[in-house]
Design a binder for these strands. Structure first.
Lengths: 216, 216
DNA sequence: CATGTCAGACTGTGATCACAAAACATGACC
DNA sequence: GGTCATGTTTTGTGATCACAGTCTGACATG
């Protein structure tokens, strides 16, 4: 088949848009743990050749978002309990630092925006929508951490979220809870008060909370 | 079963061996900041086609070891001072945690090995060999952190080292110092004494030390 | 019923090519 | 001498193909 001239010239390369799409899918928990992604499968689904599909998969694998078997097959990771605990420890280590760095720059407008995002989180909780919960919850954290002006740290914590994505979905899907996010309100309160130790504590508690559901 | 004796036919794919080679080169500071790597250049140098070379570059870029310009050219990163400070902060955050987790499992044999590696570090210092210094120094830290049984954390700190690799070389190349690593001796002493707070402090100091040279 | 076998489909890997954009060098011109 | 236009080379990107493993599932065998 001959290649058809593309009407809309690609602003960004095909492998990049595929990468970004898969990345958000994984981070938001739209893929189940253990789900396998093949080069040809993705190429067919997105009307691409194997080359850009392969690059997107390689990139995601390098970030830990996907695991590669000994024979080269890539699939969503199924995390062991130890690994989950380790990733939670990384969250508990990195996120308080990011929050602390964001605190001096957290103006009223930011706090209001966090409050609004938090209401979306609560809405997702009552709707039992796991994907929406993960998405809005991450948006809450990312909005805060963006103010830390620490791109390397932010990138690092996002790879942690990436690795937990599919497992988070599986966890929140099981759990039938309807508690609104209490820690988020503590975080917002600490931001308003300029209470740095309280902020660190609240963020740490929020990052560790997900782990507690697993162990029980 | 009767399998054909393949001498050393590709145990691991070509893109993987290229990736590992480039990775250690970058981490050890054998590449200068800003050095550009091209797909065809690497393919020619390693007698490969473009495909595996492209995958290795993509993988390293995903880990932050290489930066991609807007037009897609990849090169070794030239870090801003802010970025260096941020990466040093990540080291100061992650490495004490890894050391602390390694402490309960640090037997005498490990400490002896660390001592031996440390003598290699000192040797590299007096020889003014920047690459050897970086390599042995990282080996010292990695040997300790391997005992932490925390693969995700170890992978994360290694990406930090990766990102700093070329800049480290440039820094240590400039500096004409000949001080043996004092913090390493403190680390070993704390390990022997089972002194967890002292260990955290020594590791943190060692991780931050490199930064001090830059600011001055 | 359990287990081993085997053919066919599936899949990652590497090579090669075409194309367009970017980088570069060159030389004219003011 | 510096600046702009231009032609050439370099480079990333995507497509296509061949090859060799891997996986799957049906079937036969014990």
């Amino acid at each position: 088949m001959h290649s058809v001239p593309k009407p809309t010239e690609s602003q960004s390369p095909a492998h990049d848009v595929l990468y970004r799409n898969l990345r958000t899918q994984i981070m938001h928990g739209e893929l189940a743990p253990g789900e396998s992604l093949t080069v040809r499968g993705l190429a067919a689904k997105w009307n691409l050749s194997m080359t850009p599909a392969r690059e997107a998969l390689r990139r995601l694998s390098a970030e830990g978002a996907l695991t590669i078997s000994a024979s080269g097959r890539v699939s969503t990771p199924t995390l062991s309990n130890d690994r989950i605990e380790e990733l939670a420890a990384l969250r508990a280590l990195l996120e308080p630092e990011l929050a602390s760095r964001a605190l001096p720059r957290a103006h009223m407008a930011l706090i209001d925006r966090l409050q609004m995002i938090n209401s979306s989180v609560a809405e997702a909780v009552v709707k039992q929508d796991a994907v929406a919960y993960i998405r809005t919850n991450l948006e809450f954290h990312r909005t805060l951490y963006l103010r830390a002006q620490a791109p390397a740290m932010l990138a690092m914590i996002e790879t942690v979220w990436l690795q937990m994505g599919p497992t988070m979905r599986a966890l929140y899907g099981r759990l039938r809870r309807a508690e609104p996010p209490a820690n988020h309100r503590l975080i917002i309160a600490a931001l308003r008060a300029g209470d740095e130790p309280g902020l660190r504590l609240a963020v740490r508690a929020d990052a560790t909370q997900g782990l507690r559901m697993l162990v029980s």
